[in-house]
Design a protein around this nucleic acid. Structure first.
Lengths: 164, 164
DNA sequence: CCATATATTTAAGCTATCTTAATTATTCAG
DNA sequence: CTGAATAATTAAGATAGCTTAAATATATGG
């Protein structure tokens, strides 16, 4: 039996543990900073893809482009994103994070720092060493452009896997 | 130099990569299944802590217990949770996931499966081996009851209530 | 036992965020 | 060039999810 499936399953389990700790914090963060969950989602989407159109962002969140446009107004007003005309298609707008927008993402993640530290503190020096090494591999592989990652939105995979 | 901080930082980085891929999907999942993000947060909270009171769930999301009560009505109507009177304090209600509620959590995570597999496929057998090992360490340490169980939530300053 | 505190629920009302429909600007195909 | 398609925006209206306040039931401490 390949250990490929085993890794995918362990990743799944870890993701579950991570989400258990994160979701509530994310909702709280939004409330405190006047950001809707869609807006936070948009910021993460942009942090991942660097630049997107209005409708791409809408698609990634499952909302209409009208809603996306309105929602992005808010982020613009807060100085978290910029809108530029796409030189290749002047109907389209290129949305990107500002420095401040990137910082928000960072702050959201920083809020987990205490938890991360406590995990770290429960390990031996030796354990830390191999875990650091492994996470670096994961990060590298996760960010690699995948051969099987087509232009289709990666969120559409959800619909398929849920409707059993 | 200690490698403790280094691990915390790598965990942070990995969390960012993971969130970049997840948040939009979570929002989409909610829309498709008629679940608000608070409701999804409540499901994760329950999945983590097994049993909580109404107000504990509200606290974990930064909403009032009135709002939590209303929100939980929806989950109850969908058969995702059960409400039982707390035998130790009859003012309080014990909220827990049903089998179906647990399945929803699983489905949300399953939606990431394709991504996890593609990460796995980009590794050598040797890399997988050490990454599996490391993730198991992480999961174990993360789930360990920490000394700081009732630590203050970084976002809100609200006490993160974890049932016992 | 009584006053006060706590946990939940209900009710009423507010508003943020969505939707659809219409508008404007641009692209593309014939 | 012309008509149809696409991208974004704006406007109007619906509603989900929140808040506060009040009601109910239970617990606790002097």
């Amino acid at each position: 039996m390949e250990n490929s499936d085993e890794l995918a399953n362990v990743l799944l389990k870890w993701a579950e543990v991570f989400n258990n700790k994160s979701i509530g914090g994310l909702v709280c963060f939004g409330k405190e900073h006047g950001l809707s969950i869609s807006q936070i989602g948009a910021l993460f989407h942009l942090n991942h893809g660097r630049i997107s159109s209005v409708s791409q962002i809408g698609d990634s969140l499952g909302i209409t482009s009208a809603a996306a446009s309105q929602m992005l107004d808010g982020l613009l007003r807060q100085g978290l994103i910029v809108r530029h005309e796409d030189p290749d298609d002047r109907r389209s707008k290129q949305i990107a994070l500002t420095r401040q927008g990137t910082k928000i993402i960072h702050n959201i993640m920083k809020a987990r720092q205490h938890w991360f530290s406590s995990i770290s503190n429960r390990m031996t020096r030796e354990e830390r060493k191999i875990v650091i090494n492994s996470l670096n591999i994961l990060i590298e592989k996760a960010e690699q452009p995948a051969s099987d990652r087509n232009q289709v939105n990666n969120f559409t995979g959800i619909k398929e896997s849920i409707n059993q």
